[in-house]
Write a protein that binds this DNA or RNA. Structure first.
Length: 576
RNA sequence: CGGGGCGUAGCGUAGUGGCUAGCGCGCCUGCUUUGGGAGCAGGAGAUCGGGAGUUCGAAUCUCCCCGCCCCGACCA
């Protein structure tokens, strides 16, 4: 039983000045967490209890799916990460440190290497597989910009699982088992979420999905088809555009277009000269980027921006990607800034990637690679040929669903879980092999599955809070029942204590506000701010032999007789 | 890393060169009060983020550094 007279808790009347998003603001005000540094938080008792409740649900679902819990250190030696090249590849986000002898260590940002090595150390036969193991562990990432309180921290708790299979079919089964377990877990956590197609990116692997909790303060943007239910992270959005027959398109024609270095100015000139009807969508934008030191042109329709992250994820294998600077243009005198077209790319030694909207046979107005000159009727396949088609244009609400062509909607969300098929990358570089039926050595194939546990605290807070405070699902709240005793006599306090004791005996957790001399208003405000699902008030109505019962979420109030109150409260809790 | 904002008591804040750094919340003592963040009286609590400088005098002006928040870049 949590007695507020002794509970280590101080609620704040004012919003903390450094908290903007609701979950952060309320978790601080209600005394769950305190900030220690950017992206680093301490947990007070109420926060710890809530966090443990979420962990408990996750653990139960992982265990019941047959996954086994293990535990790794956060402090890790350099060598395993050297073997997979991630000591370097992870870049500045890795917390690196040295021991007294000068040996390199890191604080684990994720544990693929350690899991792989653990299995390698124990297993060596196909008969031991499949295997899925998991841990709940603190991760460290030196984020360039921690933000939104606990949503993106530099130290955070994650549940990470890994599956090990002998072949791709086995991996599919393990993946599906995790997917099912995640659905059960997030349902039990009372979260609203969408399962969304993701890009596996540099991690390789064939299949990847994210569990996104819709929320305006989320950092991820995803598309959703209102008709067929297709959902994808914007990076994984697929554009379907058919080829066009260009046999009747007139020949490429260059023209003088003085002083038109921007799409807008070009559209104006076109409309003036050819009697209107032109928009940015008729022009071809050539965005020059440097990818690991290599010059690349990205082609998108003129009315769209390039989404560099989307391009990078879909291209794969690019470490550093940035737009051209003046010094880069200096190396390519054939490129006239503001008048670039893809026609001469081959001659200039530039790789051309086209967004799928630049479909074969489509005709465009674009730069002529000469100052103050543009070209029209520039046809893909005739006047230029992209080296590859890569999704690169920004995704917009209203774009066509790749499954059913219905205009999609766009929403923001917090990424709460991510599952993906890793494949053999880690097993390969760390030599995790087992012998198959024929005694032949086989590289194991892996899956990787994560749930952000501390992030889930914030996401659930974001999805459930209201004007007066936090508002937890019944299984996650610090206590299921919050009993407030009011008045200056002993009777309400003794009565409240008795009900609390009875409820605890029934296995229902109770927070009891037994503070003497604290005014009722303060107690009510605190109860609402803390967000336990059922609030019981023992006070005034005691004269009629009643106690008052409120459901935090709905605000529904009722008076129930004192006799049998505990039983009635228990029934209400069960119904939530 | 680029842009913007900020740093004064546990929290929220006032204070643009001049008295002992002010107020609200919270905290302590006493009395009163007890159904919606109570009242009165008394009190404790601040190296004004740090350092250097300008000045008779600096929270306030200058320079350097540190930290925090927001937008963007970045982020298995």
């Amino acid at each position: 039983m949590l007695r507020m007279s002794t509970l280590f808790l101080r609620t704040l009347r004012d919003d903390p000045a450094d908290a903007e998003v609701a979950s952060h603001r309320l978790l601080v005000r209600a005394g769950y967490i305190r900030r220690i540094g950017a992206g680093i938080y301490s947990w007070l008792p109420l926060g710890v209890i809530t966090l443990r409740n979420i962990e408990r649900v996750i653990r139960e679902e992982m265990d019941s799916a047959g996954f086994q819990e293990v535990h790794f250190p956060s402090l890790l030696p350099r060598e395993p990460y050297e073997a997979t090249n991630r000591w370097e590849e992870y870049g500045p986000s890795l917390f690196r440190l040295q021991d007294r002898k000068g040996a390199d260590y890191l604080l684990g940002p994720t544990h693929e290497e350690m899991f792989t090595l653990m299995v390698k150390g124990e297993y060596s036969s196909y008969k031991d597989l499949p295997l899925s193991i998991y841990q709940i562990q603190t991760k460290f990432r030196d984020e360039a910009r921690p933000r939104s309180g606990i949503i993106r921290g530099r130290e955070f708790v994650m549940k990470d699982s890994y599956s090990f299979d002998i072949d791709d079919a086995g991996l599919d089964v393990s993946y599906q088992k995790h997917r099912d377990a995640y659905i059960k877990t997030l349902d039990r956590l009372g979260m609203k979420y969408n399962i969304v197609r993701a890009v596996s990116g540099a991690m390789g692997g064939s299949k990847s999905e994210e569990f996104l909790a819709p929320c305006p303060t989320g950092e991820d943007t995803y598309v959703l088809c209102p008709s067929c239910g297709f959902a994808a992270n914007v990076e994984a959005m697929v554009t379907k555009v058919d080829s066009v027959d260009s046999s009747t398109t007139p020949a490429l024609e260059e023209m003088d277009t003085p002083n038109t270095p921007t799409i807008d100015s070009l559209v104006d000139v076109l409309n003036e000269r050819f009697g209107g009807g032109f928009t940015g969508a008729h022009t071809l934008k050539n965005v020059m980027v440097m990818a690991d030191g290599k010059a690349i042109a990205i082609l998108v329709p003129g009315d769209r921006e390039v989404d560099l992250k989307r391009f990078q994820e879909n291209c794969g294998g690019i470490h550093e990607l940035r737009t051209f600077e003046d010094s880069d243009f200096a190396k390519f005198p054939g490129l006239v800034k503001g008048y670039i077209g893809p026609q001469d790319a081959k001659a200039l030694g530039i790789t051309v990637y086209a967004d799928p909207r630049i479909a074969p046979g489509t005709s465009w107005v674009t730069g002529a690679n000469k100052i103050n000159r543009h070209a029209r009727n520039v046809v893909n396949g005739r006047d230029f040929t992209p080296d590859a088609y890569i999704e690169a244009a920004e995704v917009r609400a209203g774009d066509a669903c790749p499954e059913c062509a219905t205009p999609v909607v766009i929403d923001r969300a917090i990424e709460i879980g991510h599952i993906f098929q890793l494949g053999r990358k880690y097993a390969q570089s760390l030599s995790l092999t087992v012998l198959d039926q024929n005694g032949k050595s086989q590289v194991v194939t892996m899956g990787s599955y994560g749930i952000g546990v501390t992030r889930a605290v914030a996401a659930i807070a974001e999805q459930t809070y209201d004007e007066i405070g936090l508002n937890w699902p019944v299984d996650l709240a610090p206590a299921k029942v919050h009993i407030v005793a009011t008045g200056k006599e002993d009777l309400p306090f003794e009565t409240a204590d008795a009900i609390a004791t009875e409820l605890e005996a029934m296995g229902i957790s109770v927070m009891l506000d037994d503070r003497r001399g604290t005014s009722p208003g303060v107690k009510f405000k605190d109860a609402e701010l803390i967000g336990n699902p059922v609030i019981v008030v023992v006070g005034k109505s005691l004269e009629q032999g009643n106690v008052e019962l409120r459901v935090r979420r709905t605000g529904d109030k009722q008076e129930i007789p004192l006799s049998g109150a505990a039983r009635a409260i228990a029934t209400l809790v069960e119904s939530l």
